[in-house]
Amino acid sequence: MSGTLQGAMEDLIKVFYRYSGKEGDKYKLNKKELKTMLQQELAGFLNASNDSTVVEKIMNDLDENKDGEVDFQEFVVLVAALTVACNSFFVDSLKG
């Protein structure tokens, strides 16, 4: 049996490839694939934002090499940033 962290890593990989490659490069998420993934996997984060351009902003922030797609490394940056934000919220809520 794998550890919790290893399982989380495997889950990240599986989620990425569940959405990538439905159109075009199977190793990258295009804007439509990224939007679908965010809507299905992170609906709470999207619903909390009133900004209709949130997917566009996320895509622009993540797409470091500006190829119009998000590769796995760029995707992990999103997950890490969201995890840090959630941790900060959790720590702050414990202090209150």
Rank of each mutant, 00 (worst) to 15 (best):
Gly3Phe: 03
Thr4Val: 02
Thr4His: 03
Thr4Glu: 07
Thr4Cys: 01
Thr4Arg: 04
Gln6Asn: 07
Gly7Tyr: 07
Gly7Ser: 12
Gly7Glu: 13
Ala8Trp: 06
Glu10Ser: 06
Glu10Phe: 06
Leu12Ala: 03
Ile13Arg: 09
Lys14Met: 14
Val15Met: 08
Val15His: 01
Phe16Trp: 03
Phe16Glu: 03
Tyr19Cys: 07
Tyr19Val: 12
Glu23Ile: 02
Lys26Thr: 06
Lys26Asn: 11
Lys26Val: 04
Lys28Trp: 02
Lys28Pro: 01
Lys28Thr: 11
Lys32Arg: 14
Lys32Asn: 11
Lys32Phe: 02
Lys32Cys: 04
Glu33Lys: 01
Glu33Asp: 06
Lys35Ser: 08
Lys35Pro: 00
Leu38Gly: 00
Gln39His: 01
Gln40Trp: 00
Ala43Gln: 12
Ala43Phe: 01
Ala43Lys: 14
Gly44Ile: 03
Phe45Arg: 00
Leu46Ile: 07
Leu46Cys: 06
Asn47Ile: 03
Ala48Leu: 14
Ser49Gly: 06
Asn50Leu: 07
Thr53Cys: 08
Val55Met: 06
Ile58Met: 08
Ile58Leu: 09
Asp61Trp: 05
Asp63Cys: 07
Asp63Val: 05
Lys66Ile: 02
Lys66Tyr: 06
Glu69Tyr: 12
Gln73Tyr: 08
Phe75Glu: 06
Val76Gly: 05
Val76Arg: 11
Val77Met: 14
Val77Phe: 08
Leu78Ser: 09
Ala81Met: 10
Leu82Asp: 11
Leu82Val: 08
Thr83Arg: 11
Val84His: 09
Cys86Glu: 14
Cys86Leu: 10
Cys86Phe: 10
Ser88Val: 15
Phe89Arg: 12
Phe89Glu: 14
Phe90Ile: 12
Val91Glu: 14
Val91Cys: 15
Ser93Gln: 14
Lys95Gly: 10
